Simulated assay, not measured.
Amino acid sequence: MALENQELRKAGLKVTLPRVKIYQILERAGEGDHFSAEDIYKLLMEQGEDVGLATVYRVLTQFESAGLVSRHHFEGGHSVFELSRDEQHDHVVCVKCGKVREFHDPDLVKRQNAIAEELGFTITDRTLYLYGVCKDGCEKK
């Protein structure tokens, strides 16, 4: 049985072709790749898959509810998805083109924990988004 089938069943989801295809796209994503529902829909169309955009949204919402994917909401209503992973990481988002990059900085995590402790808090979850302009030609536009 394929790994994606096992993951879907483990999450309590029935194995269907759209779910498998969408999971495969997310699974094959490069390190730090994040896809919008529209990105996934376009990739499915390029592969000749007959999956509607509404189905992509529905499956991604089901995956999110099952804990298979993380949804990141960025400014301007921009949402992207990635497979859920155990390690914490943060994001840098280009405000012009929407490009998202991941980073992990252990010193930053230590500092956040120290700040929380100073304020009498125990961190149960954390999310950090840095916004700027990427160097992929956006700053020249």
Rank of each mutant, 00 (worst) to 15 (best):
K110Q: 15
A114W: 10
Y41W: 12
F103I: 03
Y57H: 14
V95S: 13
E38M: 13
A29K: 00
D107Y: 10
V93I: 11
L44A: 04
L13M: 08
A66E: 07
E4I: 01
D86Y: 02
G48Y: 09
H89E: 11
E49L: 09
F81C: 04
V51A: 05
K110A: 15
D50P: 02
E64Q: 09
D125M: 10
G137V: 03
E7H: 05
E38Q: 15
L108N: 00
E118R: 08
E118L: 05
V20G: 03
K96H: 12
N5S: 09
A66D: 07
L128I: 13
E27F: 15
H91T: 07
G67N: 11
E49C: 10
Q24Y: 05
A114S: 14
Y129H: 11
K99Y: 09
L68C: 05
P106H: 11
I22Q: 03
T124K: 13
P18K: 01
M45V: 12
K42Q: 13
H73K: 14
R111P: 00
Q6N: 05
C94P: 10
D136P: 03
R71H: 07
D39Q: 09
K141T: 13
E118V: 00
H89W: 13
V100R: 08
L8D: 02
D136H: 15
E27Y: 14
Q112H: 14
K135F: 13
F35P: 02
Q24F: 02
D90F: 15
R101D: 07
T127M: 06
R126S: 15
Q6L: 09
L3W: 13
G137Y: 08
N113M: 08
L26I: 01
H73I: 09
K141A: 13
E49M: 12
S36L: 00
E4K: 02
G32S: 01
V69P: 02
F63Y: 06
L60Q: 08
S65T: 12
K140F: 10
E139D: 15
I123D: 11
I115N: 02
L83M: 07
S79W: 07
E4G: 00
R85I: 05
K140D: 15
L17W: 09
Q112M: 15
D33Y: 12
P18E: 02
D50V: 11
Q24G: 00
E46S: 06
H89R: 14
L119E: 15
Q88W: 15
D90H: 15
E49G: 08
V20Y: 09
T61A: 06
L119T: 08
R28V: 00
R19M: 04
G137L: 04
L8G: 02
V59D: 09
L53D: 05
V20W: 08
L68R: 03
K42D: 12
E82P: 02
D39G: 06
N113T: 00
E7D: 04
N113L: 11
E31F: 04
L26N: 01
L17T: 06
M1G: 13
T124Y: 12
C138E: 09
V109L: 11
V69I: 06
V80Y: 01
F121P: 11
G48H: 08
A11M: 03
R101F: 07
F103M: 04
Q47W: 07
Q112C: 13
L17Q: 05
G98M: 12
Y23F: 11
K96S: 13
